[in-house]
């Protein structure tokens, strides 16, 4: 089982990003996804900056992929996408994670393999076979996938394909034309003043009774709770998952990677105790915000 670090979903200052990925180089993750996937207005990091980080991670022995913008609306965004694909195609060691069919199309036209990201809505084996024909060498199912559904897909494939699962972090639940972070500050998107930089972990959104439901991250809405399927890593493995994805929450996410790597190495079931802000319901075919126990385990809430 490999461990991957998903793209950074939040808008952090450049020095924080650089610092974070310098630590990633030494962290026990096998695959690192780099780039801005949420908002094209976030320009602290340009493509050159990401490629510099990619180089140092490649030198540290990581597999590196450039992850593309998930909601592409403007010509300028297509231009950035083409630049990302071109940069990856110029470097044998780099790949692209396609988070929109535009990226899948460009990579396929270039005759280059790519990784099908979690936003591509692959829910069945015929759909996955089409992506494989287009050039997908690995895929991540939609975040709402259950074990039952994943087994149905993988069990119907003509031959296996590397499968990655979003298993830790705030789930990317929705994308919009509207920036909810700017809206919550009374600002229009065209004059957002980059307020999302004030919220390095997004803005928790609660019901009027105080229940945390969602997390605002610019045009992206995330789950209010942190998804945590790590204690079920054996179950993931049995279902056919080859790569466990951790989504960066804060620099502390690298400690989670260490705990997971240790548990995998020592074959321990428990990776990280459950806390009140954890959920993992999707995997068990119940609402995503609920917490289901692992096969031999009752959740320990602290």
């Amino acid at each position: 089982m490999k461990i991957s670090l998903g793209p950074l979903p939040y808008f952090w200052p450049k020095d924080m990003v650089v610092q974070f990925y310098s630590q990633v180089a030494a962290a026990p993750v096998d695959i690192v996804y780099l780039g801005e996937t949420v908002c094209s207005k976030r320009r602290e990091m340009n493509l050159r900056d990401w490629l510099d980080i990619a180089d140092s991670l490649l030198d540290a022995g990581k597999e590196v992929a450039l992850s593309t913008l998930a909601l592409i609306e403007a010509e300028s965004e297509l231009k950035s996408l083409r630049a990302i694909c071109k940069a990856a195609n110029a470097n044998e060691r780099l790949s692209v994670e396609a988070n929109d069919m535009a990226a899948a199309h460009l990579m396929s036209e270039a005759g280059r393999p790519f990784i099908a990201g979690p936003y591509l809505n692959i829910y069945n084996a015929p759909a996955l076979e089409i992506m494989r024909q287009a050039g997908a060498k690995r895929w991540t199912p939609p975040v709402e996938i259950s074990r039952h559904a994943l087994e149905g897909i993988l069990g119907s494939l003509a031959s296996p394909i590397e499968t990655e699962l979003f298993a830790y972090g705030h789930l990317p639940l929705a994308l919009s034309a509207r920036c909810f972070t700017a809206r919550s500050e009374g600002l229009p998107k065209d004059d957002c003043r980059f307020v999302c930089k004030k919220y390095p972990q997004g803005i928790p959104t609660r019901s009027q009774e105080g229940e945390t439901l969602f997390n605002l991250n610019g045009i992206q809405t995330q789950s209010g709770k942190c998804y945590h399927l790590l204690n079920q890593w054996r179950d993931l493995q049995h279902a056919g998952v080859n790569v466990i994805r951790l989504s960066p929450e804060s620099p502390d996410t690298l400690r989670v990677a260490e705990s997971l790597a240790l548990a995998l190495k020592q074959e321990q079931d428990k990776v990280l105790p459950y806390q009140l802000n954890h959920s993992n319901g999707y995997w068990s075919r119940i609402p995503g915000m609920e917490l289901a126990a692992g096969p031999q385990e009752t959740p320990h809430l602290s």
Binding site: A70, E144, L173, A174, A177, Y282, I286, P287, G288
Partner: peptide, 21 residues
């Protein structure tokens, strides 16, 4: 629909059922 259609799992997050599934 406020969200990009086909890219919203908020309903299954709360209920288990979404437009996609």
């Amino acid at each position: 629909c406020i969200m990009a259609e086909g890219r919203c799992y908020m309903s299954s997050y709360m209920t288990g059922e979404s437009p996609n599934n």
